[in-house]
């Protein structure tokens, strides 16, 4: 199996402060990776080095074997779906236009874009009637779904998501998370998702990468990490889902 995303000694420094220490990361095609860690750990920074939104201080990134330094930024980013931490829908464009923005940049035929938009609204489980609305007239959950649809519009093989369910209530959150995992499998994507929520990461991802202070401090399957880890910081993080699971078992009396 080839690696869809490779980070080779990637680092990032802002004004002399190392935000991301030299990092190696290999993500095989088709894997769903959750990137977890405390606030300021460098998760967003790492994610943005993948599609070039953050310029590397050192190292190199390879996408499907090609070094991103050799590609121009806009071309690269049109090939990689990205869901922003703050959603980032364009307020002056309708839902349909927001979803169709990357295909438009790629010069697709309008008819094909329209067809694709309809398809995507169905895919992310939104009523077609929303197509003509502006983002301001949507609920938070609907906006997140539009964000996911926009990221998937041009059929990327890689999807990057930065806390896509950040501001949602737990019911909506779970429903959307399930949908995202379903889409990942259905579309054969390689997905990297940043999240604060370890339980969510454990339930959705094939692999969890834990970051702290700009470094990867643990990188394994949810099962292995939940079983126990030598690093006390990782152990502390894993306490929450374990306790939740134990409490659920206790209540249901299993």
């Amino acid at each position: 199996m080839t690696d869809a995303i490779v980070l080779d000694q990637v680092s990032k420094t802002y004004d002399g402060a190392a935000v991301l220490q030299p990092t190696d990361l290999f993500i095989p095609q088709g894997q769903f990776v959750a990137l977890v860690g405390g606030s300021g750990a460098g998760k967003t920074t790492l994610l943005k080095t993948i599609n070039g939104l953050v310029a590397l201080t050192a190292g190199r990134v390879r996408i499907d074997g090609a070094a991103t330094a050799d590609l121009d930024g806009p071309t690269l980013r049109r090939r990689i779906g990205y869901v922003f931490q703050e959603v980032g829908l364009f307020p002056h464009l309708t839902v349909a236009e927001n979803i169709g923005v990357v295909p438009t940049l790629l010069g697709w035929e309008p008819a094909r874009i329209a067809e694709r938009t309809t398809e995507l609204l169905a895919l992310v489980d939104l009523p077609a009637a929303l197509a003509a609305r502006r983002p301001a007239a949507l609920s938070g959950g609907q906006r997140q779904r539009v964000g996911v649809a926009r990221a998937l519009a041009a059929r990327p093989s890689i999807l990057l998501m930065d806390e896509p369910f950040g501001a949602l209530d737990s019911v909506t959150r779970v429903a959307l998370a399930d949908d995202v995992r379903r889409l990942h499998d259905q579309l054969d994507l390689t997905t990297v998702m940043v999240t604060h929520d370890i339980a969510e990461a454990a339930l959705l991802a094939d692999r969890i990468v834990v970051m702290a202070g700009g470094k990867v401090i643990a990188d394994d399957t949810p099962k292995t990490l939940l079983a126990g880890h030598a690093d006390p910081a990782v152990e502390a993080l894993m306490q929450a889902p374990r306790r939740q699971a134990a409490r659920v078992r206790e209540i249901t009396g299993e």
């Binding site: 599609n51 939104l53 806009p74 071309t75 980013r77 090939r79 990205y82 980032g88 364009f90 307020p91």
Partner: peptide, 23 residues
């Protein structure tokens, strides 16, 4: 956040100006 999103979806500087910032 909108400027960042425009970059994130792969707009060039010029496209960002005409399709995002100016409108």
């Amino acid at each position: 956040a909108i400027v960042e999103a425009a970059r994130g979806v792969g707009m060039t500087d010029r496209q960002r100006l005409w399709r995002g910032e100016l409108p």
